[in-house]
Each structure stands twice: as C-alpha cells, then as structure tokens.
Simulated assay, not measured.
Amino acid sequence: MTAKPEILKLTKVASSRLFHIEAMDLRFSNGTERRYERLRTGGHGAVMIVAINEHDEVLLIREYAAGLEDYVLTLPKGLIDPGEDMMTAANRELQEEVGFAARELSHVRQLTAAPNYMGHRLEVILARDLYPSSLEGDEPEPLEVVPWPMSRLAELFIHDEFSEGRAIAALCLVQQRHSPAD
C-alpha cells in the first residue's frame, strides 16, 4: 500500500457562509509535490433519509435546487446538528421535511460526493414504521411530499425531476435489501 501524501501546507483560499476553499500542498511518496484545492468540510456531517410508509412508498420531497435553478424530486436530508447523533438528526429532518417520524431507523451506508475535491460525508438512513409528527424546519417554503411506490423505482430513476446522484445511490442501496411491508 502506498503511503498517504505528506501535507506540507494548508492555505485558506476563499470562504463564504456555506463553503471554505482550501489549498493543500502535498508531497507524495515518490517525492512529487502538487497543490490541490478542496472544499473543506466542517460540521458534524449530514443525513439522507429513505422513509418507507405502510403502503410501501418512499416519501420524496419536491424542493427548489438553487444550483439548477429549478425544482427537483429528492429524498429528505439535512445536517447533523451539534449534540445530535445521525439517527436523531434523521428523525428530526424527517419531521421537518415530510411531517413524519420513524419508530425504526437503521444505518444503510456512508456516501461521499466528489471525494477528490471535498470531504463531505452523507449517512444514508432507512426509516420505517412511520407516524405523523411535525417539527418547524428551516425551509423557506413548504415542501411538497411525493409518495412513490417502491415497486416503481425503475420509473423514478429515469424521471426528469429526479437526478440527484446521492438520492439515486441511496435508493439503489435500500432497494437491494428491501422487502415489502406486509
């Protein structure tokens, strides 16, 4: 196994309310030195929730995606707040975004996105045995909840509004281990 590169220097390049860009000067085991830039990750991580109701439907949300300047279908998600564990954060986000809580929560897998450029880690959580429960969230407008039958995931995967790679990956992972509710 090749040794990890030595970090020679970290330099703050730019910062905003959401993003911190950092330059990393590295020396690889063969002596080559290179500068990389990355989005520095802070906070306590994030969760994405695959919530399946008693009708064997996954609860999607339709929300505005500023990066695409359009509304998209996706899964509920959010940051893990200080003092929360991933399960508490998942249940809170579920209540804020879809108006349900879960009696059964299980960790599916950790996902990363563009790990060459950012250290963001997302915990995929499966939520079952849902019951109505709402919390005030930080969304600027009410989110539309869209129940989608698990039996029709193939259609969802090619739906124009459903394009977020993390949500597709999360549903594929859950689909592999899913057994319909009785």
Rank of each mutant, 00 (worst) to 15 (best):
G137N: 13
S179M: 10
V58M: 02
I49H: 07
F162D: 11
M87T: 08
K12T: 07
K9I: 04
R40G: 05
K77R: 14
M87S: 10
L156P: 04
L153G: 00
L18F: 12
W148F: 01
A113Y: 07
F162K: 00
M118E: 15
N91G: 00
K12F: 05
A102E: 14
E57Y: 05
E57P: 00
E161Y: 03
A89M: 11
G137F: 02
H120R: 14
E6V: 03
L18E: 15
L94D: 03
L79G: 04
I61M: 07
P76K: 04
K4Y: 13
T112Q: 08
V50C: 08
E33N: 08
L126F: 10
T11I: 13
S106I: 00
M118R: 07
G78L: 08
W148G: 00
T11N: 07
I61C: 02
E144L: 08
L10N: 04
A101N: 10
A170R: 06
P5C: 06
L73D: 06
E104S: 04
G99M: 12
A101C: 09
A101I: 03
P76L: 01
N91I: 00
A23S: 15
L60Q: 11
D138R: 07
V174I: 02
V58P: 02
I7D: 10
V98P: 08
R27P: 00
P82W: 02
A127Q: 13
A90K: 06
L8A: 03
C172V: 01
P115V: 13
L171G: 03
E141L: 14
Q176G: 09
Q176L: 12
R62Y: 05
E144T: 09
N116C: 04
I158G: 03
R92C: 02
F157H: 08
P76T: 01
G83W: 07
P5G: 02
R38C: 04
M150K: 09
E22W: 11
A181V: 10
A89I: 06
P142R: 13
G119C: 01
P147C: 07
E93G: 00
Q95T: 03
R103V: 00
E144Y: 00
P5W: 14
Y131S: 07
H178L: 06
E164R: 09
D138Y: 07
H159P: 11
A14D: 13
F28L: 03
T2G: 04
A113R: 02
G137V: 02
R166L: 10
P115F: 03
L173D: 06
N116H: 13
I21K: 09
S16I: 04
L171C: 09
V145I: 15
T74P: 03
A113S: 09
E123D: 15
M1D: 11
H107S: 06
I21S: 12
V146G: 05
I80V: 14
L10Q: 12
K9N: 13
D56S: 15
M87K: 11
L73R: 04
V58H: 01
L79W: 10
A167S: 14
P115N: 11
F19P: 01
P147N: 12
C172Q: 07
I80G: 01
L18C: 06
Y64V: 11
H55K: 13
Q95N: 08
S163Y: 14
P142V: 09
W148T: 10
P132M: 15
E54L: 13
P5I: 11
